[in-house]
Design a protein around this nucleic acid. Sequence first.
RNA 1: GCGCCCGUAGCUCAACUGGAUAGAGCAUCGGCCUUCUAAGCCGAGGGUUGAAGGUUCGAGUCCUUCCGGGCGUACCA
Length: 576
Amino acid sequence: MNLKKYLDQQVEDCLASAGSPGAPAVVKQAGKPEFGHYQANGIMGAAKKLGVNPRELALKVVEYAEKVLHETATLEIAGPGFINITLSPDFIASKLTGMFADKRLGVTAESPQKILVDYSSPNLAKEMHIGHLRSTAIGDAAVKVLEFLGHEVIRANHVGDWGAQFGSLLAYMDRLENEGKPLATELKDLEQFYQKASELFRTDEEFARDAREFVVKLQSGDDACRSLWQRFINESISHCQAIYALLDISLTADDVKPESAYNDDLTEIVSALESKNMIEISDGAKCVFLPEFTGKNGDPLPSIVQKSDGGFPYVATDLAAARFRGQQLRVNRAIYFVDGRQALHFNQLFAISRKAGFFDKSQDFRHVPFGAILNKDGKPYKTRDGGAVKLADVANESISRALSLVGDKNPGLTEQDKADIARVVGVGAIKYAELSKNRTTDYIFDWDTMLSFDGNTAPYLQYAYTRIMSIFRRATSDNELNNVAFRLEEPAELALAFKLLQYSEAVEGVTEDFQANVLCTYLFELAGLFMSFYESCPVLKADDETRDSRLKLCDLSARTLKHGLGLLGINTVEQM
RNA sequence: GCGCCCGUAGCUCAACUGGAUAGAGCAUCGGCCUUCUAAGCCGAGGGUUGAAGGUUCGAGUCCUUCCGGGCGUACCA
């Protein structure tokens, strides 16, 4: 049950009874502890519309509300017409008992939709780099939250496996083969492979000619060329899958639907647009001009769907994908987690698709953007040699830092345990660093902040979890916790209990605007309140009833932390 | 030129979409380990929310102008 929504509904009904039907109650979490748990802010606005005194309207609303909520909360009018809502400890305890018995931790399922999430989508010509982390981590969290809320989710890894850059790669593969070099070894470091190939393309004319020939051969379906290409693609996908496995990303090889999968649809896409009179030929290229898009000097801005040389740019491929998703998959929603620099592209893409009928008004296609990576000087991030930081390097660096830390903190563990813990903690830290930021702007890449294990980080949450596990390893109570009553007396207990009840608000909040940081913030606050409770309320030394109630709080805290982290794609360990 | 995104503590970021005295973490300083794991807890300092107007009971949030930054703007993706 979502407490905020519940109270919002109640107050809204009371507003209607008080003479202001349809006025929103605007119930929010209270800004300060002295304002109670929630506050209703809608009275002032409603009073204004009615032309009455807001405090008088508040009085009437409270009168009605107290009839319904007298066992739930106490209400107080404050300031110009706020209604402060303080939940009663008994109500909190009874709701918490319900949550304790609920596998879904109080989160109710929504009416199911078919939702496609397009995320990660690396270019297979290159190794995955740090720039892919955001799309991959946020997308995966969104997928897990949506699935938990009861939706049918289609993971779409729209990888780039086509285009001119594959010419150099194939030419380089071909050359290595002819020289008798073992290809498998060379392909181990894809980034280096790509760099060597593109350097040859720049410096070696014969090579460049070969590369261009390979592009033509690839597009014309030359068998030998295709099989060479397929080997490269397979190799590259298995690199990606290894990274996903390392980072606990739920994408599988089955979720890959590459650009090339739409090759056969491209001419048809163009003719579909032609049949709707949407195509104009400009400078030899087939273009769609829409009035809402203008470029330099206010000139109409085209989307080129077929180049003057007959080739298809990525607009065509994305249109084919959008049509497939709209008409074949019949998705209710399609969410694209892609770099914000492609905002114009997606605006054009969706506008053209809608106009062409590739999906209809009831289908919600949406681009969720985020920023690029910068270094500390605010310049685009590059390594010394001008390349991008490999995602695998970031993960391994984080894991090795975590390993040395766990060795310091807990030297008694076996080497295997340390290694397992280091992976979970190291991976959690870098994913959380991405997920906990809402910024759609550019962000600064800094090893120390990204790999930090202090403060508002995944390790903090994981640590709270291990503290609870430690208590249960030592707990001797043989009472069945299900039959134990909550006794919430200390402020720290009540605060923790109330926070636990807000889990559903946090989970649902993630999907409102696909901000995983809503859940991150919630879990950080939950862990913080648990830490305070842990410091001020001894569990195992308390008398039996208090101990069992506190054990129950611990258990529910652990389950909520573990579940919430799980939605974020972050694991927990028993000790660290 | 035009379009999109953005500007909040020394740094990295919040602020539940218009609510009450703008909050966290890092860093700095001061306390707390014979008591369930100190990756922790308790406390302190730190702000003209880029600037100026406007809208209204009420603005970090909405509108206008300006300043500053990033990105995009016809055959790369």
